[in-house]
Amino acid sequence: MNRHRVTVTALIAIVALLAGCGGSPKTTPSDSTSGSPATQPTTSQSPDRPDPSSTADGLPAVPAFDPPPQAQPPTLTAKPGEVPVVHEIKTTQPVAFITIDDGAKRDPKAAALFKKAGVPVTLFLLGNDVDPAPDYFRGLQAAGAKIEDHTQTHREMPGLSADQQKKEICSTADKYQKLFGNRPTLFRPPYGSYNTTTKKMVAACKLSYIVLWRETTDNGKVFYQRPDKKVHAGDIVLMHFRPAFVRDFAAVLWAIKNAGLTPAVLQDYLPAKAA
């Protein structure tokens, strides 16, 4: 019986990981129409696990990258009153994009790791995680990170009314403008879950894009949505502020390097407004 309970517990933990913010993004039918959510690709684990051993500075070894090319952003469109949804940037340039969500586990090595790696990073921060420690995130901003919107309380958007969604999105964007000096232009919905109302409320809050992802990482392992288990040009990679933050960041860097790509500034590939 105990062995059975352990097995069930382990399965629940795996499901929770994949269903959380780092699982496959979920689309929800429009508020006013019926239909099924879009079929999601299978998430597969990378067989590669880079050596996390520390160097003399107490940080893991990180790869050197070529400078990113001059950005050539694609033309993106959306219905009137809505914003585009992007999982990756449609480009042939050899670039990928590192994004980090939430902010609950504030690793003291993060700023030094960002500076050592010397690569652009975008943070989709949760307001509830920022409130207790804004100076920590100002330190990451000073290390080169850009800060974007991930709601105040991490509630799943399709379960909220239009007014509730708008409050979650707008209030957080307004707060970050005051705290960090720049108002977000990008929004990542909790759990990657959104509906038509979300696209309208993001536009109403004067943000320009909903940003999802193609790869995730946890505990030093990279997980892929594509069967070739490789980061592709233009892919957006998702990680979180978790206990294994340093190992996760190193794993993402090596996955991008092994694919022959260079981390680039996500915002440079997303025009200020969709066409």
Rank of each mutant, 00 (worst) to 15 (best):
G220Q: 05
V202F: 07
S208I: 05
K115A: 13
S161K: 09
Y194A: 08
V202Y: 07
A133H: 06
D228R: 04
R226D: 07
G127R: 09
F114E: 03
S208K: 00
A204F: 02
I147N: 09
L113K: 09
L126M: 14
R214D: 02
G181V: 07
F180M: 01
L207A: 04
T151D: 12
L160Q: 13
D135C: 08
P158R: 10
R138P: 09
P184K: 07
G220H: 08
R155A: 10
H150I: 14
K146Y: 02
R155F: 08
E215L: 05
D149C: 14
E148G: 11
E156I: 10
N182H: 11
N195S: 14
G181L: 02
T216I: 10
L160S: 06
G159F: 05
R214K: 01
K166C: 00
G192D: 10
P134A: 06
Q152A: 11
P120R: 02
L160F: 08
V130D: 01
T197P: 10
R138N: 06
A173H: 13
G220D: 11
E215F: 01
K167C: 02
L140H: 02
V119G: 08
E215Q: 03
V121E: 02
K109I: 01
E215G: 08
D131V: 03
M157R: 04
H154D: 06
A112R: 13
A204H: 04
I210E: 08
L125V: 14
V130K: 01
